[in-house]
């Protein structure tokens, strides 16, 4: 894919993260306000609350989307930074292969966890 498209995807994932990650961090770190509004049930980190959030298709799909956005956005950014430091063609090929393999491995693990957690 052309570099401009890869970069546009990096930004689109950034915008997606702004929504999904803010929701995720809101529930985890700003629970006291959200609880006042009746949107979350505290304590947010108890096993029952954690299991409830990941349960069902909607919970699993949301987590997988969040993970996919974060992995693509973050690893694309990391690739850019590493490419600035090591920019020989061989190093660039190595970095590209590294981020793709690493990203896919974490994604597969995350999808497996989300699928099993949906049935908790």
């Amino acid at each position: 894919m052309r570099e401009s498209r890869l970069w546009a995807l990096h930004l689109i994932c950034g915008a997606g993260l702004l929504v999904l990650l803010s929701l995720h961090m809101g529930v985890m770190h700003y629970a006291s306000i959200l609880a006042l509004l009746g949107w979350v049930r505290e304590p947010v980190l108890s096993f029952s609350s954690v299991a409830e959030r990941g349960r069902g298709a909607a919970g699993a799909v949301t987590y997988v989307l969040l993970l996919g956005f974060a992995l693509y956005h973050g690893l694309y950014g990391l690739r850019g930074i590493l490419g600035e430091i090591w920019s020989t063609p061989k190093a660039v090929r190595f970095i590209n292969a590294g981020v793709v393999i690493f990203g896919l491995a974490v994604l597969v693990y995350g999808v497996t966890v989300a699928a099993q957690a949906a049935r908790l």
């Binding site: 954690v50 966890v113 908790l120």
Partner: peptide, 13 residues
Amino acid sequence: YLPLHVWVTGRRL
């Protein structure tokens, strides 16, 4: 932090 977080939260299984 992300991979570490995915691994830690996976322990709920």
